[in-house]
């Protein structure tokens, strides 16, 4: 199916009649996914959003339930975000990140109701990358600029229109409702010219990480890290959280906030002991979680190659260089 660029705002307005729509919006020079109220707000001329769209399904702060003391006990109000959502125009790396969050939040052991309900009620419309950025390395992590993993519907940008494909049953049903004109243009040339230049060699990395926990390479890799959470909070796959009570007087809410393994507080025990006492252990954890532990548990790498951590690290600690340094080291050395 096809939709002309000129008709897109009208289509989005029609979708807005039934769904909350989140789409890239340019504000103060940066593109972010925002809940839109009109199709004209959307800006699809973008490389990628500053913040990852994971926050739409896994908000940085979310109330899980609220409570209040009443005359005969306590009243608890459960909070459920059951609204139907569409995420329009997210890049394939970010769409793929939802398949990783799915593993974390709806696996065989656990099903997180907050994430799961939103995920069930959300249609994800992926958007191919005709011009991947210089820090993108999606092709190195089993993805690519036209990967449809995680997308229900997929858009490919043509000169004056978008080619719209239904990927999942949910996506096919969704798009069928809007009766777009038929068409299946040849997109092979566009796909061929979308070159992802940046590469990371992951061959054998997992096997190295399996045995190098005590390797002395970790002593130096972390040295310039200042221990902030720019990399984790801007990562589309990082999903650690902290649960706090925000209460005053007789009422309050239980709130779940993003947390980051780069903070000392993340692992600080009540006793005062910290099993990850320095940046060394924390940087190692971040790498291990993405490229070993997640793979051990869910058979996929928890990195989609979006490049946000590279662009936003205050000290330019580049994950590509970090992984390369690990690869260069003979496995088992120093263990």
């Amino acid at each position: 199916m096809l939709i002309s660029k000129n008709d897109l705002p009208v289509l989005l307005d029609r979708i807005l009649g039934e769904y909350e729509v989140y789409a890239p919006v340019k504000e103060h020079g940066k593109v972010e996914f925002k809940k839109i109220s009109s199709g004209t707000q959307v800006c699809l001329q973008y490389s990628n959003s500053q913040k990852p769209p994971k926050g739409i399904l896994f908000p940085q702060s979310e109330k899980m339930f609220c409570y209040e003391t009443v005359q005969d006990g306590v009243r608890v109000d459960e909070i459920c975000d059951c609204s139907k959502k569409v995420i329009w125009g997210i890049r394939p790396c970010d769409a793929k990140s939802f398949t990783i969050l799915d593993d974390a939040f709806k696996n065989e052991q656990y099903r997180d109701p907050y994430y799961y309900k939103r995920r069930e009620n959300t249609v994800i419309v992926g958007f191919g990358c005709n011009r991947p950025g210089a820090t993108c390395f999606c092709t190195s992590v089993n993805s690519g600029p036209f990967d449809t993993a995680g997308s229900d519907v997929f858009l490919t940008e043509l000169e004056d229109k978008y080619y719209v494909e239904g990927i999942t049953e949910k996506g096919k049903e969704f798009i069928a409702r809007y009766q777009l004109p038929d068409g299946s243009p040849d997109t092979s040339r566009i796909k061929e010219s979308a070159v992802v230049a940046s590469k990371v060699n992951l061959d054998g990395l997992k096997e190295k990480l399996d045995v190098n926990f005590y390797d002395e390479i970790w002593d130096s890799l972390w040295e310039k890290c200042i221990g902030c959470a720019a990399c984790t909070y801007l990562c589309p796959t990082c999903h650690c959280f902290d649960i706090v009570e925000e209460a005053e007087g007789g009422k309050g809410c239980r709130v779940r906030n993003w947390d980051a393994c780069m903070f000392p507080l993340f692992t600080l025990h009540g006793s005062g002991h910290n099993p990850r006492p320095s940046g060394k252990e924390r940087v190692r954890q971040r790498i291990m979680h993405k490229f070993k532990y997640f793979q051990d548990k869910f058979q996929q790498t928890a990195c989609v190659g979006c490049g946000r951590c590279i662009k936003n690290c205050p000290v330019n600690l580049d994950i590509r260089i970090l992984l390369d340094a690990i690869q260069q080291r003979e496995s088992g050395e120093g263990c």
Partner: peptide, 10 residues
């Protein structure tokens, strides 16, 4: 602000 504390840590 996303409370990443990059400002503080820098």
């Amino acid at each position: 602000c996303i409370r990443c504390y990059a400002c503080r840590n820098a």
